[in-house]
């Protein structure tokens, strides 16, 4: 009787062990399949960012930005979350950084500003500049939600753009 109980216990442990292996492989296969879909979407797509200079309001330089993410040949639905941008010139000058929250603004039409000391510095540079204008480069990270695969996933995508600032 005791031997039978021991055998039953061993069988039960064996079944639980096999169940652990099966759970692990279900997790691995589903997870990696979802990752495959997202990875292909990211590597096959492009995020276009366009920035145009609007003008100066005092010492605040205003830019109009628009994002056009085309991932997986346009077949993948994306939802931009936020954009973290850094503005600079080509000579290493830094004009500050900004976060654009797309829960509040439209990704196809949003405003970027260079304000405060950075805005004043940019305006001064253009006013006293040898050239007619100044090229401002914007680079940063766009966090977007990919609505593909088994469930949405947030990914970071590098973006960059530049525009000419003239008075």
């Amino acid at each position: 009787m005791q031997k039978r109980g021991e055998r039953l216990k061993r069988i039960l442990l064996l079944v639980v062990l096999i169940a652990c292996g099966v759970i692990a492989w279900i997790g691995i296969i589903l997870g990696m399949d979802n990752f495959r879909v997202h990875a292909r979407a990211i590597s096959s797509g492009i995020v276009e960012m366009r920035v145009d200079f609007i003008g100066f309001k005092g010492v605040v330089a205003e830019f109009r930005g628009s994002l056009n993410p085309v991932l997986g040949n346009g077949s993948i639905e994306v939802e931009p979350e936020y954009l973290q941008l850094t503005a600079s010139d080509g000579r290493g000058g830094y004009y500050g950084s900004q976060i654009v929250n797309f829960h509040m603004t439209d990704p196809e039409d949003f405003v970027i500003t260079i304000a405060g000391g950075y805005g004043a510095s940019l305006k001064r540079r253009i006013e006293s500049g040898i050239d007619d204008g100044e090229t401002v480069k914007f680079s940063g990270i766009l966090r977007l939600k990919l609505k593909t695969g088994k469930f949405p996933v947030e990914v970071a995508y590098p973006v960059s753009s530049q525009c000419e600032v003239e008075l």
Binding site: G27, I28, G31
Partner: peptide
């Protein structure tokens, strides 16, 4: 090895793991 693989990939790709 299966469970370890699940753990290794799960920690690194947990945003993508449906069953985790």
């Amino acid at each position: 090895a299966s469970v370890m693989t699940y753990g290794e990939l799960g920690w690194q790709f947990k945003d993508f793991f449906v069953f985790y």
